[in-house]
Nucleic acid binder design. Structure first.
Lengths: 357, 357
DNA sequence: ATGAAAGCGCTAACAA
DNA sequence: TTGTTAGCGCTTTCAT
């Protein structure tokens, strides 16, 4: 199998390359030419070279998704949603990990090479350097996560404040009065906003006693360590609000290891409503931040901007919803569960309730 | 920000485009030229256009990973590994979902468009049509999964037979004698090979009673339904071998709902050793099929083939290892667990043992 | 409706 | 070492 070019197709069909191109792309051409060219193309097994088309047309039909930690279920969920929208629109999706080797800034700078028509970026930290790079790049970028107010970019974000209000409100309704917040690193975007959201949510409930501790990472093990420290202190809280599901699961484990029953002696909640939350026992009450929707909307915004580069920047905030599971409800059948359906089904099943944000 | 080309850099530096190109690419050029060109490039903010380079050089520096169900933790793990190798070698990774819209065959055919230099393909089903397309494509493809023996392609595969031997051997050692195998759909590659592997593994233990049932899918809910049916039958097995972790978790739930204690009354094992296996309680004993290693090796094979297209096809089989957790061991502290570290740490912790394949 | 020719931005012969 | 020139494969004016 050797590469066959449009020149060969044209020769085989007995027409010029221009006519061949037109016939292939549905431009004006006589029915006879179209027939001859299509026949030639089929015979020769011609497929247009993507690179040459990109160079000529000035667009690659590729979009990038850049994220630090692919492997985190939340980002995977977003990626799936993005991939669906992107491929349905005839684009390919390239994955740009902004891990150890290259930072978000490098990735954005690299956009100048024009290997994609646009990018969805999920930065772990928003630095001035990043904002500068974003301002300079000629390629459209949609940012997942909160940006300073004066930045004029398409943005999709979760609503940490409402998320925390849902959690805290739920805990108060469950008669919890002493809440420990186990956050992840506060120098990350989610860490900072969840901290602020928790603080704000608590203000609405003057009778609450609260405290905060930062886990070293948004992981089960870091959550375990941080929660254990909290639970071993002399004044034990009656609820732990974890900054994400992994930390929350770590907290459940810590409670178990200390012989504390969840939720009877200690209530635990998470954030993200990942698949894990529905799989652990007791199920982890969690706030769904709408990862799927955020991914989908981000992709749609990007496509819209590519279609109309001069349109105004949009900021979309996706409403969170609370999914109540056994880790936070004092019902007789708290340890029980519904059918082991997937998450969406589960949310309507026994032992789980969803409250809109 | 408008696109700046090498022509402008050359003009700014007062040299020809050829000299500019050479200076930029580390070809022979005088120190003075290099300095001038680099200065001009920096001043103008020049970055080479990826598409033009691709067209000229005949390679895109892009590799594709094609998989049906991104979102499945196993494929995500492979993808992470692939991404690491690929980006370390200066390639970008494009994600080709072979979901509903486009089949594996379409994806392989599309390779003719030359938008990537190679592809790692994880086909759900290996059809003749797919094999034909693979034989015809000029672009290197590494296949994840088993292929017919006469197919001469780079392949990385798991060892289902050994995996099943490990599981069955373990169950026999735990005094299980009546084993139900809950498989996924047998018209998929994993389904077929796990079925065969189980059958072969069982042959080594003549005293075993076994039976099989196929879940409708490799999911928790399908596993739940299938396991429930098995467990409600008049002759209850004392062990369930699930074809993957999700089915295994469904089986644990089914046992719970029927009031059966795991592992005391019914032992359950999974396959894949996903993160979920370490998170559920009791922990799910599972065979690690080396997803990370398979992904890494596949990427390495692909890069090697690109570097040397004429080299002989390689087939690498990755050895499985059994990770024993609470769902299958009758120890006093079976329900307990070690520290909630990540999987690799866990495997060496209390309550878990890893046996090589 | 068709063909000749230009050119997207770059690299690589080839000459000088 | 450097510049000139010819393309990579395609689309798109511009004449005809």
């Amino acid at each position: 199998m050797v590469r066959v070019t449009i020149t060969q197709v044209a020769a085989h069909a007995g027409v010029s390359v221009a006519s061949a191109s037109r016939a292939l792309n549905g431009q004006i051409a006589s029915a006879e030419t179209v027939a001859k060219v299509q026949h030639a193309a089929a015979t020769l097994g011609y497929v247009a070279d993507a690179t040459a088309q990109s160079l000529k047309r000035g667009r690659t039909k590729q979009l990038a998704y850049a994220v630090a930690d692919i492997g985190n279920p939340v980002y995977v969920e977003m990626m799936s949603a993005i991939e669906r929208v992107v491929s349905a629109s005839g684009y390919r999706l390239v994955l740009s990990s902004t891990g150890t080797s290259s930072s978000s800034v490098d990735v954005v700078r690299d956009l100048g090479r024009g290997y994609v028509d646009g990018m969805i970026l999920s930065p772990l930290r928003v630095t001035d350097e990043l904002l500068t790079a974003l301002a300079k790049t000629p390629t459209p970028v949609v940012v997942l996560g909160r940006l300073p107010d004066d930045v004029n970019l398409d943005t999709v974000r979760a609503d940490s404040l409402t998320a925390m209000r849902l959690v805290v409100g739920h805990l108060v309704a469950e008669d919890r009065r002493d809440i420990a917040f186990v956050n992840g690193p506060v120098d990350t975007t989610p860490g900072a906003f969840r901290r602020d959201g928790f603080a704000a949510a608590v203000l609405a409930h003057p009778l609450l006693t609260t405290r905060s501790v930062d886990a070293e990472d948004f992981t089960i093990s870091a959550g375990y360590a941080a929660a254990r420290q909290v639970l071993e202190g002399d004044r034990r809280p009656d609820a732990i609000v974890a900054a994400n599901d992994l930390i929350g699961i770590g907290a459940i484990r810590a409670a178990e290891d200390l012989g504390l029953r969840v939720p009877h002696e200690i209530v635990v909640t998470g954030i993200d409503n990942t698949e894990l939350a529905g799989v652990v026992r007791p199920g982890l009450t969690s706030v769904d931040l709408g990862a799927e929707e955020r991914g989908r909307v981000a992709a749609e915004l990007l496509l819209a901007r590519i279609a109309e580069p001069s349109r105004a920047a949009h900021t979309v905030t996706v409403a969170p919803s609370l999914v109540v599971r056994g880790s936070s409800v004092h019902r007789p059948n708290t340890q029980g569960h519904a059918s082991p359906a997937d998450r969406s089904t589960e949310a309507t099943g026994l032992g789980e309730e969803r409250a809109a944000g």
